[in-house]
Write a protein that binds this DNA or RNA. Structure first.
Length: 195
DNA sequence: CAAGCGATCCTCT
DNA sequence: GAGGATCGCTTGA
């Protein structure tokens, strides 16, 4: 049942903004005892560490939570957002705290499993948000610090988006000028984009 | 120890 | 579809 191939580590070694764009269409896979759940990434946001007021790592703020952002590209950065868990791909060189937030995926494999985890909801609501997709795929804090290159969590190649849209990021109204940076990318017209 | 914070969900229209 | 209540961890004092 598992015939995905993790994407090479070299993939993560591109500039954060480029990586955010190239992650679109890739398959995000999580394997657990209950089975495999996967989905195509359709929405991402780039967070460029030191200069980005919206990033946890702004001004090189280094805490227990942001520690993994300073590690090498391809690491899994999960953080708890009040009630939800959000997942990021660490990018940039070591000591450069940058990351790409995965905001939405399109369900692919393990859809029954996702509904079990998400409860009674609609197909469109299953993974169309950063907190929803982590719950649907079973991603949680145990994945913090892992790498996106082998089970139980990894990224495989998927499809090539026909068209990509670019715009300002969501949910960071207190970040002054950083809130207008066009660092959000999504697959144009995809039904699972968060908004 | 208190406050702030964003995503989700619920209810109502 | 839109707006408001809720939820609980991290941070900084």
């Amino acid at each position: 049942m598992n015939n995905y191939k993790p994407i090479g580590n070299g993939f993560f070694e591109q500039p954060t903004l480029t990586l955010a764009r190239n992650l679109l269409g890739c398959l995000l896979v999580k394997e657990m005892d209950e089975g495999i759940a996967s989905g195509f990434i359709v929405e991402t946001e780039a967070y460029c560490g030191p200069l980005d007021k919206a990033a946890h790592s702004f001004n090189n703020r280094r805490t227990k939570r942001t520690e993994v952002m300073f590690a090498e590209a391809g690491n899994v950065y999960t953080y708890l957002m009040h009630t939800h868990c959000l997942v990021n791909v660490v990018s940039g060189a070591v000591d450069t705290p940058e990351a790409v937030l995965i905001r939405a995926v399109e369900p692919y494999e393990g859809i029954d499993l996702m509904f079990e985890r998400r409860g009674d909801t609609t197909m469109k609501n299953l993974t169309s948000g950063p907190g929803k997709l982590t719950k649907a795929l079973g991603i949680n804090m145990t994945d913090y610090g892992r790498r996106f290159d082998e089970p139980p969590i990894y990224i495989a190649s998927g499809f090539t988006p026909n068209d990509i849209s670019i715009g300002p990021r969501i949910g960071i109204p207190n970040s002054e000028e950083a809130k207008d940076y066009p660092w959000r990318f999504w697959v144009t017209g995809n039904a699972y984009v968060s908004r």
